[in-house]
Design a protein around this nucleic acid. Structure first.
Lengths: 205, 205
DNA sequence: TAGATTGTTAATCGATTAACAATC
DNA sequence: TAGATTGTTAATCGATTAACAATC
């Protein structure tokens, strides 16, 4: 489908462009240039043009890019021109925050369920969700065809949860547990670990 | 101090090595090799040796690296051989989760205060913290000499908060608001946006 | 000693930037 | 038309990998 192989690093920048364009659209802007978009996201104009041109000729010489058109194209490329169901595993503070998070709206995602293995938590209400038992998780994910999960359990349990998710057919994992996960090649993992992110900056202090 | 300029991309991998080594130490292991460490974090052995060798000769031919020794060195390099005070701005669900987060322990950080501009939230208790008024923030950060902040306010308020933080002397910002921040060159920003992270993976689904 | 593994060099690979013809 | 900005090429820059002498 994608003629040439798109480098990972380019795919990684597209959501940033998408977010900035969405913001411009919200502000009522109609068109932008690689120059202007670059200033917003801190990336050179040349690189933005190169990145976007991997997927087609979406701009016009002299006038730049139609924001709405480019938004549509980027959503299509990133496959967020639809709504993906996502499950949360772990009903602690982070799981709680994610279940209530309004920021998935309009970005292509919707929390579908939240699981925990603690019987004391199972059955509890979190926002509009009822915490479900991890024991039923694989079956539920399989039958619902869910492909995306977020792990918010302690590090000690994270690999085990990841194994179950993979078994259930999940293909993309957002991991909040502070540990590197071992998954098959066809499964993607993204890591969110505040301490790790902070440690990337203390070097420069 | 650092003889040659260390590339950003290398600095970014060090916290991942640190985390894996900490885990190995917790498991009671004494030594490791670039090979073994690489398998844990999904990075080639050659790259790990190259990265580490930027800072000194920390290994021994034939036997590899002493985990404790390498931990000490990495903590020193990343400047997390001390405890950094960090402030949280925004007392919503994410701010709440961060204020209670146990994962900063032993990673070099400690939440020192949490601020919000909503008078209804000011004075409320969150774990062991009392939410403080954003109006007092700049003064407090300055007098405490705090250099690190986490922003968990809505996107619409994030740039304004960032400006205040910079004014207060903050040099490292972990931004949970879904927006690119504009800050001076001497201030670092790391971004945590679950939707953006998820969108990096949907491309491959 | 024999085996293992580092630190480093050189080769390869990939990403970014600069520049500009094409064209709206 | 004149001015602006794209898409693309070639040049540059930087990162990764492979290989191996050094040595524990």
């Amino acid at each position: 489908m994608n003629a040439k192989k798109i480098p990972d690093i380019i795919v990684g920048r597209l959501p940033v462009y998408l977010r900035a364009l969405q913001r411009m659209a919200d502000m009522g802007l109609k068109t932008t240039s690689s120059q202007e978009l670059g200033e917003h996201v801190g990336i050179s104009a040349a690189q933005i043009r190169k990145d976007i041109s991997q997927f087609g000729e979406f701009g016009k010489q002299g006038t730049g890019y139609s924001i709405e058109f480019l938004l549509d194209k980027l959503r299509e490329i990133l496959k967020v021109d639809r709504i993906w169901d996502v499950v949360v595993v772990g009903a602690g503070d982070v799981g709680h925050a994610l279940a209530n998070y309004q920021g998935f709206q309009d970005r292509g995602f919707r929390v579908a369920a939240i699981f925990d293995n603690d019987k004391a938590k199972v059955g509890q209400k979190i926002g509009k969700f009822v915490v479900e038992d991890t024991e039923t998780m694989v079956e539920k994910i399989k039958s619902a065809g869910i492909k995306i999960a977020m792990i918010t359990v302690p590090a000690s349990a994270a690999q085990e949860v990841a194994d179950k998710l993979v078994q259930a057919g999940v293909r993309a994992i957002l991991n909040y547990a502070p540990i590197s996960l071992n998954v098959p090649n066809n499964v993607r993992v993204q890591y969110i670990d505040p301490s790790t992110h902070l440690q990337r900056m203390t070097f420069y202090l």
